[in-house]
Design a protein around this nucleic acid. Sequence first.
DNA 1: CTGAAAGCGCTTACAG
DNA 2: CTGAAAGCGCTTACAG
Lengths: 336, 336
Amino acid sequence: MKTSLKDIAETLKLSKTTVSWVLSGKGDEKGISLATQEKVFQCAKQLNYQPNLLARSLNTGISGTIGLIIPDITDSFYSKVARSIEMEAEAQGYSLMICSSESEIERENRMIRLFKAKQVDGIIVAPTKVSKIEIQNLVKEGYPLVLFDRYFPEMQTNYIIIDNEGSSYELVKRMIDNGASKIAIITTNPHLRTMNMRREGYARALIEANLPVDPDLYGEVTFVDYEENVFKALDQIFGKVPDVDGFFFTTHILALEAFRYFYEKGININNGYELACIHGVSAFRVLAPNMNIARMPIEEIGKNAVRILLGDIKYRLENSNGKKEVETLVLPCSLP
Amino acid sequence: MKTSLKDIAETLKLSKTTVSWVLSGKGDEKGISLATQEKVFQCAKQLNYQPNLLARSLNTGISGTIGLIIPDITDSFYSKVARSIEMEAEAQGYSLMICSSESEIERENRMIRLFKAKQVDGIIVAPTKVSKIEIQNLVKEGYPLVLFDRYFPEMQTNYIIIDNEGSSYELVKRMIDNGASKIAIITTNPHLRTMNMRREGYARALIEANLPVDPDLYGEVTFVDYEENVFKALDQIFGKVPDVDGFFFTTHILALEAFRYFYEKGININNGYELACIHGVSAFRVLAPNMNIARMPIEEIGKNAVRILLGDIKYRLENSNGKKEVETLVLPCSLP
DNA sequence: CTGAAAGCGCTTACAG
DNA sequence: CTGAAAGCGCTTACAG
């Protein structure tokens, strides 16, 4: 049913070699007569020939596919980066396989193994918490790899992160400049370096302004059941510091939940409070038009991830197994 | 560097056949001695053998991969369905390739061709407006295919949609029951059957309640630059019908934009207005806690899409080229 | 200007 | 109980 090179070769009484060369655009280079080339193209079109990319990949060792693993495809940050990566990869002639790890370490490891088995040329991953085993294997094998959003300082890998500390610092500084002095931080997953840095930026801004880093203004929320836990954390903060006058949210998810809290408690958060959040979603334009938002450089992340990965892939092709030195990028957020 | 079946066979002085059988779990069935099996497993583990799935697929004609094409991966509806499909596919032993068509017909066609070239076993697609050529080809070839969200009545395909007319009717009925009588509809892409059905449901509810279907309450927004166009549509409606008392949004995207409008104009939409929307996003819980929302049966869509697709795939394997009759599903939304 | 042959890494009748 | 061989659909030296 499906037509193959062989079918074309047989109908035209040519060799598969010739057909393959013509179809892959090497006709002129290989000095194949225009007449023959024309015949081949004609026949291919007529039989509706579609090359079997699997066979090609098996032969060349190049799949033309890169793998992307993100914690959650429904998270607006990750899905936007995914789109950016898809567009960039496509522009470079690569296709993309996307998988969610669901923040489960075992899923992440499984996905990496799957990608390798499917012979993807390289992998981009926003690693989940403590993910290690398979990422370590990738590093050991010199498999083209780019991490983003999170990274492991003890591992020699390419990575792209945002300037978590600096962005947080700038956000909190703006809140202070606008008059806030009792600024709470609502954060999660403190074991993540990412979150640590955000907390540090927050603290630096406070200290610089001679404000205390008050533990009573620290709201930490476990990620499971975060809906409920955001409420608890806010209850506590309002209990201990009733005149709190600012909130710094380390993620948009926490902020959205907090807005639900404010709404339910009848707190008009857009009046008398300073707000800040890392990463913005469209609902914020309505919910809190004045919130200070550090906008993620989505396009930059996507473009650079693909660029670095393809660089590694190319390098590896040319210097079999040679290991290129890693590239690390700390991108600034755009601030108000 | 990478170990293959051959490497194991050679180190163990066995044939590739034996090794392949053992590793694919057919050792007992083929009567291979436990001693040999043990040796093979040992060696595979030691050499860190990972089968090349490309080679297997080329041989068996089964890639174990299904392709998914959605208009926009950053849209919360589509990304949630994507996640549901990914989970369900994985549970069935399939992996998933996701691509966005970006609502561009040429991209969609290209993606379908790519999927075929990569030999995916079947394709799930939420088609874009007028997409046809390649989908028609798929149908003609009997390629396993499931459409969702949108479909083409003139084509014999599996599809899963929600009950657009019924859900819209129910939503508008609730608004009327709650006292609204001048209900505007804000909609887009009127050439889509989906949107047409939603408008028809809206009209039926009005007519049933002896309310006029007032053209002045009809707000149609082109999808490009919809931000701006939502504002224009609302301006017009308020201009012509100042005492409008309800808004039915046919998509969450339009509603979000409208909330921005209400906010900017200082209209307290949660007071004196009835609201309804097809598909809910988390921000609505804060922006409009009383809005009537028809919740999409995300899990149902995902599960059924995979079930139907795998059914087709299996059927086709067993009856080469036989065409199974198509399955069409109209799922209800859950209503308030 | 064109072709025969080997090989990518698997699986699977067929044979003993 | 195990193996030699063909084949999936390509690409690419090598040869003429």
